[in-house]
């Protein structure tokens, strides 16, 4: 009894320490975002504070192109998700249901892409995209982001389809459904958690990417959030208030996304062995 009790408290204590490590940077980001510029560089700071100002957020929304950046980021991330989900679901299905020559090579080759430093992959992509006129376009950046997310997604979907029992679709076939109908109506719903994991993974990579967006998007109207944020840093002194305000605004919807989808996420990745 007492031992059980001690265990529980120790676990609680460890968790508290761990959560402090995870949350403190996020907390301080929020506090800084809500601190007016003139007080920013005046340490010592009150670590716990109740007076806040919306000055930075107001400046962010009115005096900068933050909303444009945010819009661009969303468009590119959604495009990346859509292409990734379609391509990786199909590939995962084929890999798990058919035998064909070159299957092993194809799977291994997906991993090769990760062995090349992304920032230097951006250079040839830049040359190619300049050549075919895809620079400063949503399409170009989406394709670039696909290059870093698709390989792992093919992998995730391949693994996922393996645990969706064949008997499910076979049952559909015997009741007269075509392969395509069986895929759409029977397999896809049971593979949903895997699809959601793939979607979130693609979203995260696209949403976070700095290297490709920085090289491929040169027109400020096409900047994504990470590149746009970098302009706040630029040659003038670093405007910490603005940076933290935009970080805060970016984090809130992301948190909501993780919070509501975590059940699927957990399930999807559990197959990733």
């Amino acid at each position: 009894m007492t031992r059980e009790f001690a265990w529980r408290w120790m676990r609680f204590l460890w968790l508290a320490v761990g959560m402090l490590f995870v949350c403190f940077p996020l907390y301080w980001m929020a506090v800084t975002a809500l601190t007016p510029r003139t007080e920013l560089f005046r340490p010592p700071y009150d670590v716990i504070r109740f007076s806040y100002s919306l000055e930075n957020i107001r400046e962010l929304l009115s005096a900068t192109q933050f909303l444009t950046f945010m819009g661009n980021s969303l468009i590119v991330a959604l495009g990346t998700v859509v292409i990734n989900v379609m391509a990786s679901t199909l590939a995962g299905y084929a890999l798990s249901r058919f035998e064909f020559r070159g299957k092993k090579t194809f799977v291994a080759a997906t991993l090769w892409t990760y062995m090349f430093p992304p920032i230097l992959l951006a250079i040839p992509l830049y040359l190619v995209f300049s050549y075919i006129g895809l620079r400063n376009s949503y399409g170009g950046l989406i394709l670039a982001h696909v290059s870093i997310s698709l390989p792992l997604n093919v992998w995730i979907m391949w693994q996922y389809f393996q645990v969706v029992p064949r008997s499910l679709e076979e049952a559909a076939w015997t009741s007269g459904a075509s392969r395509l109908r069986a895929l759409i109506e029977v397999l896809l719903p049971s593979a949903l958690p895997g699809i959601i994991s793939a979607a979130i993974f693609s979203f995260a990579l696209s949403w976070n990417d700095f290297a490709f967006a920085f090289i491929l998007q040169t027109d400020i109207a096409m900047f994504t959030l990470p590149v746009g944020l970098a302009t706040f840093v630029e040659q003038s002194a670093i405007h910490w208030g603005l940076i933290m305000a935009s970080s805060l605004i970016v984090s809130l919807p992301t948190f909501a996304l993780v919070f509501f989808l975590q059940r699927y996420l957990m399930h999807g990745f559990s197959i990733g062995k």
Binding site: V22, L229, I243, S247, V250, S251, L257, Q262, L265
Partner: peptide, 18 residues
């Protein structure tokens, strides 16, 4: 759980600057 997973979904530049 969501808080622990969150950093993975934040842009790298945000994390670097924070």
């Amino acid at each position: 759980r969501s808080l622990v997973i969150l950093p993975y979904l934040l842009p790298t530049i945000v994390i670097g600057l924070v």
